[in-house]
């Protein structure tokens, strides 16, 4: 195991984050504040409470999930796509590293960034609403697993993508709709019954639900199922990455 290489990749990726620190931090903070103004204050004033939690507080877990997923995904996919695009991938391929070190470096850095931004949103949210976190370990576990699994997913997209359009395709066409339909801003119990069934096919529902359970102790689906879902998703991504590693798919000719 070439830990020095993992460190080198991780540092280089984090350096990019630091270089663009202001925009990395400011844009999620601003958009979170906007969500609070729109959903929390404007719409929330009419919704009042969802299952005993003020609407403003209710949307916080979903909001964090929304941002963490998109950030982990886009950071990891861009992180590995960029060297492919500008050609510096030659260095990774010729280095004494296996795919494992490359993944640890890129996915680790992307997950770290996403985690950091997630925590920033949590802090920002605490200025707007009174937050309670009933189960800290579960909250951290869900947050970490989401950061890691979506960074892995992003890494796969970055490997797969042949151009910038493809790089944007999955986040735009798949992830964003799933996240918005995943109960970030509402409880799926508020949906008509038929749609509730449909929603159960959306993996994001399980993540948001489990994460919300860690905050308020209430969930759309049993928390064990949520844990299984995120565990399963992580496993699926790991298997896909393992397969890429075995076959050298899209990397080594």
């Amino acid at each position: 195991m070439n830990w020095l290489a993992v460190k080198a990749i991780y540092r280089a990726e984090m350096a990019r984050f630091v270089r663009t620190f202001l925009q990395s931090i400011i844009s999620p903070v601003i958009s979170t504040s906007l969500y609070f103004v729109v959903f929390g204050a404007a719409i929330g004033s009419r919704i009042d409470e969802v299952e005993g939690v003020s609407y403003g507080a209710f949307i916080v877990p979903g909001l964090i999930m929304l941002t963490v997923m998109t950030q982990a995904l886009s950071n990891a996919s861009f992180g590995i796509y960029f060297p492919k695009f500008i050609g510096t991938i030659y260095e990774l391929l010729s280095a004494p590293v296996s795919f494992l070190e490359v993944i640890l470096g890129y996915v680790g850095a992307a997950a770290t960034k996403a985690l950091f931004i997630g925590l920033m949103i949590l802090i920002t949210a605490s200025f707007f609403v009174e937050l309670q976190i009933q189960n800290w370990p579960a909250m951290i576990a869900f947050l970490l697993l989401t950061c890691i699994s979506f960074a892995l997913f992003g890494f796969i997209i970055g490997i797969w993508a042949g151009n910038f359009e493809q790089l944007q395709l999955v986040p735009l066409l798949v992830v964003t709709p799933l996240v918005f339909l995943g109960g970030s801003f509402y409880s799926i119990n508020m949906l008509p019954e038929a749609w509730q069934t449909v929603a159960l096919f959306n993996p994001v529902v399980y993540l948001v639900s489990g994460f919300r359970w860690a905050f308020f102790g209430m969930a759309d689906v049993p928390v064990g199922v949520s844990l299984l879902a995120i565990g399963g998703f992580t496993l699926a991504c790991v298997s896909a990455v393992w397969w890429i590693f075995k076959t050298g798919w899209k990397i080594r000719s």
Partner: peptide
């Protein structure tokens, strides 16, 4: 990347 960091990165990458 700066020249220095680029060289440092490569050194680390090669273990």
């Amino acid at each position: 990347e700066t020249v220095w960091n680029a060289a440092r990165f490569s050194r680390g990458l090669f273990g």
